[in-house]
């Protein structure tokens, strides 16, 4: 537990010292979302229908962009080797890395979501559901994405490959997340979707750290 907090604190400290970069995933998120009214139509009745989907796709792309850095600098400066060699359970350390990443990139997305909901005329009363699904879904995106990064971190040009590896795996989160909001718009019950997303979160919280650790052991060799 000591090691978990130490690593989490270090990553948060590093993020704080590079706070100029901190806003980038969030800005990306906002910009992508604001492109849609320009490309499709500023008509509120059209925007309303696609608001949830657009916000979810943008959150997914933003996570994809930022997740690549989760192990990059550790790999380059050799601290990743030190982490792999230390006498601590690796999955716990991986959970610390992913938690730090989510706190720095996932949480800000949720915080700016009300603003984007406003821009896209998200129907009244569904903002809460949207934020709840993002809260349950974005950690899953970080966890699953980190597996892909762990597999490709040793490659010089892993960027496109990473996209190919993890985007198909993101579809369940996208489907349940966007759908819950759409169902809420129509006044339907969304407990089912919320439970399913919680299930995905629990599943990935337990299994992904194991996979990330094993993948890193393979990549750093």
């Amino acid at each position: 537990m000591n090691a978990f907090t130490a690593l989490l604190k270090r990553d948060l400290l590093l993020a704080y010292r590079n706070r100029g970069e901190l806003a980038n995933p969030m800005l990306f998120f906002i910009i992508v979302v604001s492109l849609f009214p320009l490309a499709v139509s500023p008509d509120p009745s059209i925007l309303e229908g696609m608001a949830a989907g657009v916000i979810w796709v943008a959150a997914l792309l933003s996570t994809l962009l930022s997740i690549e850095r989760i192990f990059r600098s550790d790999f380059d400066d050799g601290t990743l080797e030190q982490i792999l060699l230390c006498p601590q359970p690796l999955p716990i350390l991986m959970l610390a890395k992913v938690s730090a990443h989510w706190l720095v990139t996932g949480l800000p997305l949720i915080i700016v979501t009300p603003l984007l909901a406003l821009l896209l005329h998200l129907p009244e009363g569904t903002l809460g559901i949207l934020m709840l699904t993002l809260l349950l879904g974005t950690p899953v995106l970080s966890l699953v994405g980190a597996i892909g990064v762990a597999l490709t971190v040793g490659l010089r040009r892993g960027g496109m490959l990473l996209t190919l590896l993890i985007l198909p795996l993101y579809t369940p989160v996208l489907i349940f997340g966007a759908n819950a909001v759409q169902a809420a718009t129509m006044g339907l019950d969304v407990t089912g979707q919320i439970y399913l997303m919680s299930g995905l979160l629990v599943l990935s919280l337990t299994l992904a750290p194991l996979a990330i650790g094993s993948a890193l052991r393979v990549s750093v060799s």
């Binding site: 490659l155 490959l161 190919l164 198909p168």
Partner: peptide, 9 residues
């Protein structure tokens, strides 16, 4: 993706 990973390493 699986084939891409295999050929990239």
């Amino acid at each position: 993706g699986y084939m891409g990973l295999g050929s990239a390493i």
